[in-house]
Nucleic acid binder design. Structure first.
Lengths: 187, 187
DNA sequence: TGACTATCTGGATCAGTGATCCGTATATTC
DNA sequence: GAATATACGGATCACTGATCCAGATAGTCA
């Protein structure tokens, strides 16, 4: 890649990161290009779709979440490991308003730039789930996709201003449903 | 209202209903106007915002859900009544792809045309919840807004093609968390 | 050092969105 | 039948992302 191209690409990523944090995933691409002092065409050549841009921005973050799950696989408290990781996932997505919708779409769309990362994330969660199930501390009628869906739904809640204040509490409610031995009881 | 205006309004509503069912809540307003053989300005005069149009389309449906809750308030199995009604709510929203997002936004936005309907729906659910709590069959650390949020999240799942197949099952999982005495156990 | 070429750039343009303006057409009233 | 209040919709605006292509430039080779 030519040096000027590389420089533009890096600068675009930096600006896009700021814009994403400020305005969420639906931020105008033209705005990003403007703020980076670059033509819209240049932004779109480096990142042909919004998802490609997000993939470049979030790839590291995705990998980190997956790695964190791997590290927890050896925990001797698999249920706690699972719940803790799931909570981290929900918290993580709140930093990127709106990304949940794209993830939900990407998990089944092999064309999406985010597909591979999403599948890896689901697999990582599934492994934690299986360990908890084998320990008898997680219900056995759910699988990795179910857990992915629940996390996505809770993350979506966090994106809705009116419902976000309840997201943490509702995470606990849902988590209690995933685990066995904690009953569906009160606080 | 002038007779021709009334006719246009009714016709627009009919066309919009079809378009909504076909393409979801993000359907192009220009498309609706075209299919109704009417100018875009005419559609927008009758329904100044997309939400106003949806309100006109869904008002009856909203009222029906609220009424159904009221009817269930005298049930002698409050927990079953609550869960049954919540399931109906989720099923209902799946008919209008995307409406969940607008409802989540409208619940806290007094300017929204959908606000009143959403608040009524939440209140109706809250009454069913309280009855189940008083009977000792629902956990007491959740309130009407929590339940509204959970229903919204589950309805959102039903809108995501990749996750929709799990929506029914996950409803059961979440419902089990709301109730006491059913433990968080397996199927 | 200078020229050549492959690469990169961004203004201009296109089709799409919802919003708004305002001259024209028409239903209603007297 | 004439007057008027009302409704209509084409035209336009600002915005979105996508695409094209003439011009600018970085890297290379003589």
């Amino acid at each position: 890649m030519r040096a000027d191209a590389r420089k533009n690409r890096d600068h675009l990523l930096a600006v896009a990161g700021t814009a994403l944090a400020e305005q969420g995933v639906e931020v105008s691409l033209r705005d990003i290009a403007r703020r980076a002092d670059v033509g819209l065409a240049t932004l779109l050549r480096h990142f042909p779709t919004r998802e490609a841009l997000l993939d470049a921005l979030l790839r590291t973050s995705f990998d980190e979440m997956t790695a964190r799950a791997a590290a927890l696989e050896t925990s001797d408290a698999p249920a706690e490991a699972l719940v803790s990781w799931l909570r981290d996932c929900v918290t993580w997505t709140t930093e990127y308003r709106g990304v949940t919708v794209l993830m939900a779409a990407a998990i089944d769309d092999t064309e999406s730039a985010l597909h591979a990362s999403c599948v890896a994330l689901r697999a990582a969660g599934a492994r934690l789930l299986v360990r908890a199930q084998e320990a008898g501390t997680a219900r056995t009628d759910v699988d990795g996709t179910d857990v992915f869906a629940l996390v996505a739904a809770l993350a979506w809640l966090g994106d809705q201003p009116a419902l976000a204040p309840r997201a943490d509490h509702l995470f606990d409610v849902v988590a209690s449903a995933l685990l066995t031995g904690t009953a569906g009881g009160d606080a």
